[in-house]
């Protein structure tokens, strides 16, 4: 990269993203800044650079949650639940693939229980399911995970709040400017419109972009259903600094 040339990114649309303060989601009330974010008009390397994870050594089952919890152990069973594959593409806002970027995910098991010290929900742990995956996108920005469909679960917000089935998704992109953590929902889930966390997003169209679609054409008979979920990271701009 020439010294006078940097990649910058399309400004983040803060009206499209959920606001920090969203009182329907009670925890956000005490955890949201009250001062305005301070805009940085002249980004430096501190904003436009980021880590490249191509040399991060991944295990062979890191993106296969059907197998990665029992790998190297005595256990030989498969997790309970609806076997699915989640796949899609990481692209930027101009439709350009984001290759070789780290995509990480975590989820509850088919009963809606997380394998986390703090989860006390009555649904049982599955001895054959951990609930964590990671992968790096290929040249075309594609990624895939094999897993089971997570169950909905209750949580303390309103007297009777339930999360729709969801998978937490983390993507790095080419810069810390493009860093993003979001959640994938499933087409047709009746809990989506009732969820206080989904409803932190004001625009119904934005929620649609987080709803994965059943892809029957790629579903495999007697193996798994397939859901498609594309992730859009901020658009890369070419910025030229020229002195004259």
């Amino acid at each position: 990269m020439a010294a006078n040339e940097h990649t910058a990114f399309v400004m983040r649309d803060r009206n499209w993203h959920p606001p920090a303060y969203a009182p329907g989601y009670k925890t956000s009330v005490a955890r949201s800044p009250r001062q305005a974010l301070m805009a940085i008009q002249t980004p430096s390397a501190s904003e436009i650079s980021g880590p490249d994870f191509q040399r991060l050594t991944l295990g062979p089952y890191d993106n296969d949650l059907l197998n990665n919890y029992r790998e190297g152990t005595e256990r030989d069973g498969l997790p309970v639940g609806e076997r699915i594959q989640v796949y899609g593409r990481v692209i930027d806002q101009f439709g350009k693939p984001v290759p070789h970027t780290l995509v990480e995910m975590w989820q509850a098991n088919a009963g809606g229980r997380y394998r986390h010290k703090k989860d006390r929900y009555a649904a049982p742990l599955d001895p054959n399911f951990g609930g964590v995956g990671r992968t790096v996108t290929d040249e075309g920005g594609w990624y895939r995970f094999r897993t089971v469909k997570p169950g909905p679960y209750p949580w303390p917000n309103d007297p009777n709040s339930w999360r729709p089935a969801h998978i937490h998704i983390s993507v790095m992109g080419p810069s810390i400017s493009t860093r993003l953590i979001t959640q994938l929902y499933f087409e047709g889930d009746p809990l989506i419109p009732h969820c206080p966390i989904v409803n932190t997003i004001k625009d119904a169209e934005a929620v649609e972009t987080l709803t994965s679609r059943l892809d029957m054409a790629r579903s495999r008979s007697f193996d798994c259903l397939v859901y498609r979920f594309d992730i859009v990271t901020r658009g890369a701009l070419q910025t030229f600094f020229e002195n004259f």
Partner: peptide, 10 residues
């Protein structure tokens, strides 16, 4: 030109 995927809490 596409909208960025909206964020959700971790």
């Amino acid at each position: 030109f596409l909208p960025e995927s909206p964020s959700q809490t971790a």
